[in-house]
Design a protein around this nucleic acid. Structure first.
Lengths: 219, 219
DNA sequence: CCGTGCCTGTCAGCTTGCTGTCAGGCTGAC
DNA sequence: GTCAGCCTGACAGCAAGCTGACAGGCACGG
């Protein structure tokens, strides 16, 4: 974890660096607004602790310029001024949290951890088998990187095959999963769906093991 | 956006509901810890405001049980007790933010907005998708920079689509977040809102993936 | 207290494209 | 060879979604 601390009071800066380092961050320090803006704009930090009272360039202005530039790292704002208007202003400028001075280092560390924890929670859900990949979040299908248009039913079928890509899935199981227990459908319905998918994606994607079921061809 | 407010002081609860509603949330209230736990565990909220001093079940315990159960919605904790130790404890229990009583409603709303923004992966108050941009601070909508007049309901819909702009949002989910579970509405109500929005904003803004849901068209 | 205007849910009719069925052909297993 | 299992193109039915019209509800101002 990489952290940037922007603080012009040398003594507080030292304490900050010590506390964040102890918490497992690799800390960089600066006491100048211009510097801070440049670093935050060009480097990839997991966390920024930003003091508002700065020489050079005001902290709020720095923050706004970052946000306007799509820099989305978590920013924890420090300030000596503590009125609620200023806190609201800071948060609306794009701060993720706001801590009035004086504060306890323990609290700062706890909040810093919470921010980093929250920022980390965006994992991509990509599943692959051979040339085929499906994005379970976006509900999208791609073949060799090229998007393929599929219907909801077709997608569910692919998703189920993907989930069980280590074995052939028997038609009965697929039917049950796609339609539930109401066996009103002819078994042929499933074959039709498979055929349509194969027409869209060409051969070498969905395989058949006669008597066992369907599967996704691996690389 | 759907919010749960857990607060046993009736007067504060009313104020909370009013402020959050004005900020564009659909608010549900409870004053009981057990209730709160059940709701938060079974319903899909975009934000929870949680008071710690509760009858039934302590707020911190509720929060911990949610987190242990993988409920990851943003939680903003309120408390009368304000020592830094308690704040640290709250954050380590899984709170995303912490506000000591007494507080200003303006600040709470600002923090609530920041939390929801961050949960969607965005830092600033301005969120964009294609030609559309939302100002979450002012509840304003603009198309190619020109302001568009939308109703509160329409705004909530756009905000929710914006929040989840990386995937198509199924109608059932939209209905739940706009109206709650009282399925007194015909499904067609949603389609009517979509149609009205499309008439205001023209084509190329709200897209449909048949069988999957609605989404905001990207650049 | 009464209009007025806006918001929003319901309804009916329509378009669109998904999907099950059918008929017929193909093929691997025995 | 023969048969069950599987494939495929065509087609019609149907459900998801769209839209314009309308009316009840609610806030607001007079």
């Amino acid at each position: 974890m990489r952290a940037l601390a922007v603080e012009d009071d040398a003594r507080i800066a030292d304490d900050l660096a010590a506390a964040l380092t102890a918490a497992g961050f690799r800390v960089e320090l600066t006491n100048d607004g211009e510097d801070a803006w440049f670093l935050g704009d060009t480097e990839a930090y997991d966390l920024v602790v930003l003091d508002l009272g700065l020489p050079g360039l005001d902290g709020l202005a720095v923050l706004k310029r970052w946000r306007a530039n799509d820099r989305t790292m978590p920013v924890l704002v420090l300030t000596a001024r503590g009125t609620w208007q200023e806190r609201v202003e800071g948060i609306e400028a794009g701060a993720d949290d706001y801590l009035p001075k004086p504060f306890r280092m323990e609290e700062l560390v706890a909040r810093a951890r919470a921010l980093v924890r929250r920022a980390g929670g965006h994992a991509g859900a990509l599943q692959e088998a051979g040339d085929l990949s499906l994005d379970t979040n976006r509900m999208g299908v791609a073949l060799r990187g090229l998007p393929v248009q599929v219907s909801a039913l077709e997608y569910r079928l692919l998703a189920y095959l993907m989930q069980h890509r280590d074995r052939p899935v028997p038609p009965t199981e697929l039917l049950e999963h796609l339609y539930g227990d109401d066996d009103s459908r002819e078994a042929n319905a499933l074959e039709a769906v498979i055929a349509r998918l194969r027409r869209k994606m060409g051969p070498g994607v969905i395989g058949t093991r006669r008597g066992f079921g369907y599967f996704l061809e691996q690389a």
